[in-house]
């Protein structure tokens, strides 16, 4: 970002990084949303934090915010939805999705920085690319590897989560646009 000090991170950047790591954790405290009855798995609000960090903070700070969050989970703090935490969750079946979060936020931020004049549709597209395409591209092969499932079978399992993720993309786009309008110099 233009406002970032040329060398290293300013105090403000560190505080923002901590804030968005905490925001991702706080989103895990929200009960999962059931929006299609029993037809689709309930969605956790947590990956909304990934999308917001990237879209609001940009590539470097957004990626670092999620790196901090994942590090806090790894050291055993129960910050993932449902009070989960520790290495066992990061190594488990959904580990690939979680470990991809810093990269997802970075890529969303990078796309936003490349196109500062993006309208809502384009922002939504960028958020969806980083928050769904990149996340699944990391998470599904991991799941396939760890469960010795083929890629196509793992993909089938994950299709049920796409509608929920699209809801989060819309929310993240609205909130990120609102925040950028309220604070143009984030």
């Amino acid at each position: 970002m233009e406002t970032t000090a040329p060398r290293g991170l300013a105090t403000k950047d560190i505080v923002y990084i901590a804030l968005f790591a905490a925001l991702t954790a706080a989103l895990g405290l929200m009960p999962p949303i059931h929006f299609a009855g029993a037809a689709l798995p309930p969605i956790s609000a947590q990956s909304l934090g990934v999308m917001l960090a990237g879209a609001v903070l940009g590539s470097k700070r957004g990626g670092l915010a999620l790196l901090l969050f994942i590090a806090l989970v790894a050291v055993g703090l129960p910050l993932l939805s449902g009070g989960r935490g520790g290495f066992q969750v990061l190594m488990g079946t959904s580990g690939g999705f979680l470990l991809a979060w810093p990269l997802c936020a970075y890529i969303i931020g990078y796309l936003m920085e490349k196109d500062t004049a993006a309208g809502p549709a384009k922002i939504g597209l960028y958020v969806a690319f980083g928050g769904i395409v990149v996340m699944y591209a990391a998470g599904i092969p991991w799941m396939a590897f760890i469960g010795k499932l083929g890629l196509s079978k793992s993909l089938t399992i994950m299709v049920a989560y796409i509608p929920g993720d699209l809801v989060k993309v819309v929310l993240a786009t609205i909130i990120a646009r609102g925040l950028r309008r309220a604070y143009p110099n984030l």
Partner: peptide
């Protein structure tokens, strides 16, 4: 030192955000 600052701030922010 910056990493330590970020860690302690994040831990403090979670209950504040709630």
């Amino acid at each position: 030192e910056k990493v330590s600052l970020a860690i302690s701030l994040a831990l403090r922010f979670i209950p504040v955000l709630a």
